[in-house]
Amino acid sequence: METSDKPAKIAFSEENERRFQRLLPHYPNREAAMIPALHLLLEQYGFVSREVMAYVAERLEVPLSKVLAVASFYTMLNMERVGRYHIQVCRTLSCALRGSEEILAHLEKRLGIKAGETTPDGKFTLSTVECLASCGTGPVLQINRDQYEESLTVEKIDAILDRLP
């Protein structure tokens, strides 16, 4: 992940360039590769900056406004920098019935931030999100793009936080 405030010119990494080239033939036009391309760059840079959007517009041969419309529509396409660990707590009904409010309160206390904020050291961002399709094992949270933690308790939260380097 790029951490400098002045990133080098935005471009797919070699691996992501290969992935991008492989996905183009799956669609009848280049614009359809918009969300997959943004996912690749999000993985690479951590957030969808204006420069990332300009790069996608250029590669997909669409106006920047189209990329901005898409990036601002989908919740996973962070347009702001987030912490090294983005902790996303499900707030929707099934998890709430199993105690997600206590889980969130405990996280806010342990991390010293409110939902929607990032710790000063940039290690954690805490968010609430809507139903993660894991209602049978709630309360549930997601860390970054791909890690589910299920059947949460306060003790389990402590263990998870202690384990993150």
């Binding site: 996905l23 799956h26 969300i35």
Partner: peptide
């Protein structure tokens, strides 16, 4: 038959 995974990005 070609088959492609297309991932969403967070929108109910």
């Amino acid at each position: 038959l070609e088959m492609t995974v297309h991932r969403g990005a967070g929108a109910y």
